[in-house]
Amino acid sequence: MKILICDDDSALVSMIRFKLSRENLGEIIKAADGREARKLIEQERPDLIVTDVHMPFHTGLEIIAYVRQELRLQTPIIILSAEGLEETVLQAFNLGANDFLSKPFSPAELAIRVRRLLQKL
């Protein structure tokens, strides 16, 4: 299993990576911005994507649209964002996100949500 994490906060990404690896959820790849994320999605075809909303180059919402509409993939996507404004949440789900977590978040909870989505595959 391959999991892609995109967030521009490198310390946080490192922590999530630590946690998910520890739980043996799979190989973790990371992207610091939307452009890198798109490239990795295309090349690596991850089994699950965890992404922030506000990122350089492409927003998390654009990433969802890219995966669902352009690549036509059903890869599970979890949005992990500092802003949980209703409109953004709704828009994310409308575009095809599978889950939404607002920061501050619990890494343990994220790990469980990731596991659950991976098990469904």
Binding site: D9, A11, L12, M15, A82, K103, P104, F105, S106, P107, A108, E109
Partner: peptide, 15 residues
């Protein structure tokens, strides 16, 4: 600084 910035993103036991 690093820890404070992480703290802003974390909740629960990790926090």
């Amino acid at each position: 600084n690093e820890m404070v910035s992480l703290r802003k993103s974390l909740s629960g036991a990790a926090a």
